[in-house]
């Protein structure tokens, strides 16, 4: 009894676009000489992907991103006020996955109260509170991406603090 229409919308939305580099591919290298195989790291090595430049950001206007690869849509935001976990000179830049961690529907940004909202089952997440689920069905808060900003103002994503919906390894 699932609503097929909404599922289709979801697939279309998160498969669209794809301009960003898929830097994750390099991580899956497999050694052909097992006796000398390098043990895997306990945690994943994440790609460092450029998301935007500081000059691209307008307060409270979301920029669509894809991280760690093109199949994982997200959002980059400048909030205008420092938040815990915020990056940048003012501590107000954040980035999140926009796939709802409940059932993977693509979420929309409500700029009025600064939440990400899921049209599938009505969950919502607070981008000013580290992606905490304000109300909903997900059993984890929204994956937030670790950001680095270089001297040129380029903003890079370099990790995630939760498992992203739809993948059993954040880096595929």
């Amino acid at each position: 009894m699932r609503c097929k229409k909404m599922v289709d919308v979801g697939r279309r939305q998160f498969l669209r676009g794809g301009a960003m580099a898929t830097a994750g591919a390099a991580m899956a290298t497999v050694s052909t000489t097992p006796a000398k195989a390098t043990p895997a790291n306990a945690r994943l090595d994440y790609p460092s992907n450029r998301l935007a430049n500081m000059s691209d950001l307008v307060v409270n206007e979301p920029i669509e991103i894809e991280y760690p690869d093109a199949d994982s849509p997200g959002v980059l935001l400048r909030l205008g006020e420092a938040v815990e976990g915020g990056a940048g000179p003012d501590g107000d830049i954040v980035a999140f996955s926009t796939l709802c961690p409940h059932k993977g529907y693509p979420m929309s940004y409500n700029s009025e109260d600064r939440t990400l909202n899921c049209p599938g089952h009505f969950s919502r997440f607070d981008v000013e509170a580290g992606g905490q689920q304000t109300w909903g069905h997900a059993t984890n808060n929204l994956p937030q991406y670790a950001l680095r900003i270089d001297d040129a103002g380029d903003i890079y994503a370099e990790g995630s603090d939760e498992l992203i919906y739809g993948r059993l390894s954040n880096v595929l």
Binding site: V7, R11, D71, P106, A138, Y165
Partner: peptide, 14 residues
């Protein structure tokens, strides 16, 4: 591969 919305093959850490 990325699993789609309403996946029955994905599980959360919880």
């Amino acid at each position: 591969e990325q699993q789609g919305a309403d996946s029955t093959t994905w599980y959360a850490p919880s």
